[in-house]
Amino acid sequence: MRVDLFDFELPQDRIALRPVRPRDAARMLLVRGAQAPFEDRGVRDLPDLLEPGDVLVFNDTRVIPAQLEGRRAKGEARIGATLHKRMDLRRWQAFVRNAKRIKVQDQLVFGGGVTAIAEERHADGSITLFFEGEEPVEVLLDRAGTMPLPPYIAQKRGVDEQDITDYQTMFAREDGAVAAPTASLHFTQKLIDAIDAKGIKRETLTLHVGAGTFLPVKADDTDDHAMHSEFGRITQATADRLNQAREAGGRIVAVGTTALRLLESAGDANGKIREFAGDTDIFITPGYTFNGVDGLMTNFHLPKSTLMMLVSALMGRERMMAAYAHAIANNYRFYSYGDSSLLLP
Rank of each mutant, 00 (worst) to 15 (best):
E39S: 00
M28K: 03
P345A: 10
D240Y: 05
R91N: 09
M28H: 01
I273C: 13
M28S: 02
P303N: 13
V57M: 09
E9M: 10
I195N: 06
I153Y: 11
H326G: 13
F38R: 05
G232R: 07
P286Q: 02
F300P: 04
Q155M: 12
I273N: 08
E120L: 11
A73V: 07
V293I: 15
E9K: 15
T257A: 11
E69G: 12
E138I: 01
Y167E: 10
L46H: 05
S229Q: 14
P150D: 12
M315E: 03
H186S: 08
G295D: 06
D48P: 01
A177W: 07
A219H: 11
V31L: 04
L5N: 14
G295M: 05
N270Q: 15
T188G: 13
L46V: 06
Q162R: 13
I102Q: 09
I15S: 05
R71Y: 08
I64H: 04
A194N: 07
N330G: 07
Y152F: 11
N243E: 13
I252R: 15
T115G: 14
L262P: 04
D40W: 00
A177H: 10
R71G: 03
L83P: 01
Q168D: 08
E9A: 15
L262H: 13
V159Q: 05
R101K: 13
F276S: 09
L307T: 07
A183W: 03
T298V: 08
A329H: 01
I102A: 02
P37L: 12
D196K: 13
P22G: 14
I200C: 12
A179T: 05
D88F: 13
A81K: 09
D166K: 03
H186D: 07
F283R: 15
R2I: 00
R72T: 02
Q155D: 14
M321L: 15
K156Y: 03
D223Y: 02
R157F: 11
Q107P: 06
D294S: 07
A116T: 09
E161R: 02
L342V: 00
T206I: 13
L10H: 03
R27Q: 10
D7F: 07
H225N: 09
L29R: 06
I164P: 00
K74W: 06
T188C: 15
R23Q: 10
L191A: 09
V3I: 05
F300N: 12
R143V: 08
G42D: 00
G113H: 08
R274M: 14
V217R: 08
A194K: 07
